[in-house]
Simulated assay, not measured.
Amino acid sequence: MHEPYLTAPPDAPSQDDAVWIERSWDEPECFGAVFDAHYAEIHRYASRRLGPYAADDVAAETFALAFRRRRRFDLGHRSARPWLYGIATNIVSRHRRDEVRLLRAVDRLNPLAEPPRGHEDEVAAKVSAQHVKGTLARAVAALPAAQRDVLLLVALAGLSYDEVAQALDVPFGTVSSRLNRARGKLRKALGEKNPLLDEEEA
């Protein structure tokens, strides 16, 4: 049996997420428009952080929680994207050990070795293919959780500083501070170079 948020209204026109969320208070099926607009992106983010095997559960739980909490959404925001990323990040936080273990597995992965066969190695290979390799993976794994969240919301989700602040419910300055500290640690670990996250310095 499907949850009511899984099906968008037929022929739903494009509107702000806030419109659909407010409508969903009385017409739960309207939340399907938010689901359709953002599910693939949230699933991709979860997969990049925890691997494809966990992504289905994280994405499903994200939208289940968002649906149950939809009356708490600030209707002053047009997009639900940062809000959804915040929920997803909180869910990912329950899997910190899995994320660190995944990153360390990537660090150990030898690109010249035989193709990976185990579950962990398969996940590691997928992350490696997404350019999170070796020393960088080790450095990201070593970051404090709060700094890693900010870093990956910017690097993987492509959120702006303002959107990260909204997602994590922290001040803009906190986002900037955490990101600067994280980048500094990565630059140090990578010999003062960070090919993934410092495009502005390229």
Score class of each variant (00 low, 15 high):
R48E: 11
R108P: 01
A142Y: 09
R181K: 06
E120V: 14
D121S: 12
Y45E: 00
A18H: 15
Y5K: 00
K193E: 10
I21F: 08
A125F: 15
V170P: 00
V132Y: 00
G158L: 06
I87R: 07
E199Y: 13
V154R: 13
A167G: 07
R138H: 10
L152D: 14
A33Y: 08
D17G: 03
R70E: 09
K133G: 02
A165F: 05
F73V: 05
F67M: 10
R148G: 07
T135M: 06
P115W: 15
V106Y: 08
R97G: 11
L143W: 09
E61F: 10
A129W: 03
Y39N: 13
H119R: 14
P82C: 10
H38F: 14
R81C: 04
S93I: 05
T135Y: 00
E163F: 06
G173L: 01
L65P: 00
L84T: 14
G86C: 05
Y45K: 03
R96W: 12
A141Y: 10
V19E: 04
L65G: 01
V100S: 02
V127R: 15
K126N: 06
R94C: 13
W20D: 06
N90W: 06
R44K: 08
E120M: 13
S14V: 07
W83V: 07
R181T: 15
P28A: 02
D17A: 06
E41M: 06
L190A: 04
A155V: 11
T7G: 04
E192R: 07
R71A: 07
D26S: 15
E41L: 05
E99F: 04
S14N: 01
A167S: 13
V154A: 13
R69M: 14
A157G: 12
G184Q: 00
H2V: 15
R71S: 08
F31A: 07
H43G: 00
Q15I: 01
R78A: 15
A60E: 11
K188E: 15
T89Y: 01
R97T: 13
D198M: 03
A59V: 14
R81L: 09
D16H: 07
G173R: 07
D107S: 10
A8H: 11
A142L: 01
A33H: 03
K188S: 11
F73K: 03
G191V: 03
V175S: 01
G51V: 15
R78G: 05
F31M: 05
R148V: 03
D121T: 14
P13A: 14
R178Q: 13
S176Y: 10
L50P: 12
R72G: 01
Y85L: 12
S93R: 07
R181Q: 11
A141K: 01
V154W: 04
A40M: 02
V34N: 06
A12I: 02
P82T: 05
P4T: 14
A189P: 02
I91Y: 07
F73P: 08
D149K: 00
P4C: 10
W20A: 03
N110S: 15
S160K: 05
G51D: 13
A8W: 08
A60L: 13
A55D: 08
Q147L: 02
